[in-house]
């Protein structure tokens, strides 16, 4: 691991800047409160004490997009809501990630009709899709950890 392995216990650790930045981004990723429908209830269950999300650094759900990094689109997005979703995504500062939680956000789910956007990736770029209707809190946590793995492999210039 570098210098300290050869010189013994100096009380310091060396690593690349990329790893440090990615480490800090994953350990304190603040989600934005974007619960729309049924998946929001499972997201709230994941936030509550049984399947705790705070152990992943997501203690609070920030209601303001300006203070959050992660947008978990939980629930079905209608054509009326899609411009609002886009606007909120644009208001989030870089670096930002999107998890499409549930079937309705990933592909329109069981609602294949005039009112529902068939997959939220028509509106915002999605990093991780979590399947389920609604996905269990454990599935959501699996999705978040997958996102963490993805972020840990990112290059520094990914969010220019």
């Amino acid at each position: 691991m570098g210098v300290e392995a050869k010189l013994g216990d100096l009380g310091l650790v060396t690593l690349t800047l990329e790893k440090a930045v990615n480490w800090s981004r994953t350990r304190a990723m603040w989600p934005m409160l974007f619960g729309l429908a049924c998946c929001a209830i499972e997201m709230m269950s994941a936030q509550a004490s049984h399947y705790d999300l705070s152990r992943f650094g997501m203690e609070l759900m920030r209601a303001s997009p300006r203070q959050s990094d992660l947008m978990i689109v939980a629930g079905r997005v209608t054509r009326k809501m899609a411009p609002v979703l886009r606007r909120l995504y644009d208001q989030m500062p870089d670096p930002k990630w999107v998890i499409a939680m549930g079937d309705c956000a990933s592909c329109g789910g069981i609602f294949n009709n005039y009112a529902i956007v068939q997959g939220v990736d028509e509106v915002v770029p999605v990093d991780v899709y979590v399947a389920g209707c609604p996905p269990r809190p454990e599935a959501l946590i699996h999705g978040i950890i997958t996102l963490h793995h993805k972020v840990e492999k990112e290059k520094l210039a990914a969010h220019a």
Binding site: R86, N113, Y114, A115, E122, V123, V124
Partner: peptide, 29 residues
């Protein structure tokens, strides 16, 4: 929307053989 001559508006399932065709019709932002 709830009139019977208003279409349901569904999107066909996207398989590999028609992926591009449906992708072109999708209303991206």
């Amino acid at each position: 929307p709830l009139r019977k001559d208003y279409p349901l508006g569904y999107e066909e399932v996207q398989f590999t053989f028609n992926f591009d065709e449906i992708d072109r019709k999708k209303p991206y932002a």
